[in-house]
């Protein structure tokens, strides 16, 4: 069963490989026929609208919406759990829907509280 499921995915892997096969020659051909002039070191500086770049390129950057990222970790998994229920909805008894509604209720309450907290200022 596991081997069959894995075998279903082999065309996707082939397609991924074909994408690589299509992309790499384009870069190689471009490298072969394009000019390479390296006498001017300023040309290779990072783009900062014509100024000489100051400071580090990779610096600490303020992630202002951190609360959403924390919520994403939880609710993304929730939304994938719902797919397992939805795809087998026609096969399972109707009472199973009640428990999933309870699950949804808990998740809605949690999401509402998290969104309420993320809207408040001064806690992040």
């Amino acid at each position: 069963m596991a081997a069959e499921t894995a075998a279903q995915f082999t065309p996707v892997i082939y397609m991924l490989g074909f994408g690589v096969l299509a992309g790499v020659p384009a870069l190689i051909i471009s490298r072969l026929i394009a000019p390479r002039r390296r006498y001017n070191p300023v040309k290779f500086l990072p783009m900062e609208c014509g100024q000489m770049p100051t400071g580090e390129g990779r610096s600490h950057f303020m992630m202002q919406y951190y609360s959403y990222i924390l919520m994403f970790v939880v609710f993304d998994v929730m939304s994938i759990f719902l797919f397992a229920w939805a795809s087998s909805l026609l096969l399972i008894p109707r009472t199973a829907t009640l428990s999933i509604m309870a699950f949804l209720g808990i998740m809605f309450a949690a999401m509402g509280y998290a969104l309420y907290l993320s809207g408040r200022k001064g806690i992040w």
Partner: peptide, 18 residues
């Protein structure tokens, strides 16, 4: 830097496979 564009095309191709 060299691998990301190729990976981008390959991932896009993998979506169309489905």
């Amino acid at each position: 830097f060299w691998a990301s564009p190729v990976a981008f095309v390959a991932a896009a191709a993998a979506v169309t496979a489905l």
